[in-house]
Design a protein around this nucleic acid. Structure first.
Lengths: 340, 340
DNA sequence: TTGAAAGCGCTAACAT
DNA sequence: ATGTTAGCGCTTTCAA
């Protein structure tokens, strides 16, 4: 069996409290410190975090619930979050709920039983009733990339509407007026925001929003290829397209190659996410990028901060919503029809 | 504060042991069962897994260490593993070590302190000394996608060499003799295996292995584009290429479009991984696919099995190495130069 | 079947 | 600065 603090106490002739104090940054006489360290070495002692967790009622574990681990956007955020949390001694307990609301709720229960200290969630469900439990227990909850009206907690978002709007504005500024959009599913928060950005940009430029220029895809590669084909078929006068997520951008590019449509000569294109793909494409794609690293840092930061103030019980400060700006990566996929 | 078993005992007038027994499948008189369930309901009682873990010395947590969470191959495996483990009541504590050996070692320590019941690892380091700790403690370790000579534990691999060999054989059967290869880094186990498969296929067909037909990339998209360009430039007589991972396959396809080389008319191509990309490509790519779901299932299965036999201490059965077959997804990217 | 009691490894209050 | 002691919430003998 692994050595315990008791063993260290016995070996050094010191009291249990002294050993504990040593591990918790308390003051220990130089002499004893050395003795303790020696004993630790000899007995291969390692603090039992489970026992510590029972006593302190803090597990130093953060629950993380995401819709799909094998979605690059989620994965990049989680990677950053996990890294930061771990550097502060917190472990990440990750649950993939496969974009299933029921599984999501189960995951919340699961993590609650595990007594995680906080919850980071990119919710699938629209209604966050099952998060109440955490809030009531005074455990911090941080929402990522999705807003929930009913639930009062911290939240880190990206300015999807603004990003889409400014992307479309770039096309307008370049002289395009017949601008297609490959939009996402109506029931996805981010997809709707991006769609609204597109509409807004056109409206502000006094351009008409034409139904035939809008095709909804399902956020997948093949959804992108299909949407692009339809767009090109239905709109011979279209000169530009805005694609609103990564997978569909990839699909759109594949289809454009198939149709032998030259970018940007015959069609301008602005895509979404994944710098690596944009840079590797020929010509380089102009894309909207989301600051996944920064999202992760903000999320982890808020969580850590909330955990730090845990002592003040009620007066934990107002929930905060942070909306991060997206970036724009300039490529060569947009043709200037006029000087700006 | 959350209710404890003590509270339930008090509320029902029963003893603590009875409550505990109730939760652990023991026999409880019908009358009392009802009383207990009522009290649970009223007090919103939920078992404290931490306390349970301290007592039983089993946390029901499995540590998972991977090189990169935002690598689709890893993510797909982990998703499956996590799903299965959770369905058996085990939580996954995931550490991304960013393909850094030092971070990997730290992660092992971290998880050991946390007293995870087992470890699943896709190792970056070549030497698994730091895994000894787990083995000594009698905690199961399962290696994924990488072998380690020095360490004696279960292991789930893919037949990389065989997969590459049979992919190249397909090209040979179709009549190709000048077959290029975009290989991966020399220090990556899977990359070397795939490279050896390529060489083996050529040798068995009495074809010479030409240096100019082999270009090493770094497993990234841009590595793939660069490699493909070099290959085409240096080998005007090359009729086919085998690309040995997903990112480079994507890069190769992008470059082929740029160079306006027609697939499969002017160049045949067999890629690696990611069905979705292969299916969306035009023409559809022929690729080797790895059974990520099955890998995940095997890994989780072995882990669960080992955990079940925990009681028998030493006699835990010999470590097992499972090598899974890859699949081949037929596309239209290979031209027949002769009838097979 | 049920109850009483000991103790898992640790922290924290209190006393020294 | 250090020692003593009492639990944290649970499981698990051992008796009844």
């Amino acid at each position: 069996m692994a050595a315990t603090m008791k063993d260290i106490a016995k070996a050094t002739g010191l009291g249990l409290a002294t050993i504990s104090s040593y591990f918790n940054g308390g003051n220990v006489r130089e002499k004893n410190r050395i003795k303790i360290e020696q004993a630790i070495e000899e007995l291969h002692f390692e603090v039992n975090e489970v026992a510590r967790g029972l006593k302190t009622n803090r597990t130093k574990i953060i629950g993380i619930i995401i819709p799909e681990l094998n979605n690059i956007f989620c994965a990049e955020i989680i990677t950053e979050v996990e890294d930061i949390l771990r550097s502060k001694g917190y472990a990440a307990m990750i649950c993939d709920c496969r974009t299933d609301e029921k599984r999501e709720e189960e995951a919340v229960e699961f993590l609650y039983h595990r007594r995680v200290d906080g919850l980071i969630i990119m919710p699938t469900g629209r209604n966050g009733e099952y998060l109440r439990k955490f809030i009531r227990a005074g455990k911090p909850v941080v929402l990522v990339d999705r807003k929930m009206k009913q639930i009062d907690c911290d939240c880190v978002l990206v300015d999807n509407k603004g990003a889409a709007k400014s992307a479309v504005e770039r096309l307008i500024t370049a002289g395009h007026t017949k601008i297609g959009m490959i939009a996402g599913p109506e029931d996805v928060y981010t997809a709707e925001e991006r769609f609204r950005g597109y509409v807004l940009a056109l409206q502000e430029a006094d351009l008409t929003v034409e139904d035939s220029l809008i095709v909804r895809g399902d956020y997948t590669i093949s959804g992108g290829t299909a949407a692009m084909r339809k767009l090109v078929e239905d709109n011979p006068d279209m000169t530009a397209v805005f694609v609103s997520n990564y997978e569909m951008t990839m699909g759109a590019v594949i289809e454009v190659n198939e149709l032998d449509v030259k970018i940007p000569e015959e069609l301008s294109l602005i895509g979404f996410d994944n710098e690596e793909f944009a840079k590797a494409s020929i010509p380089r794609l102009s894309i909207v990028t989301q600051p996944t690293g920064e999202i992760g840092r903000q999320v982890a930061g808020i969580m850590l901060q909330r955990l730090g103030m845990g002592s003040t019980e009620s007066e934990t400060g107002e929930p905060e919503t942070r909306k991060l700006a997206t970036c724009f990566l300039e490529g060569n996929s947009v043709k200037k029809l006029r000087d700006s």
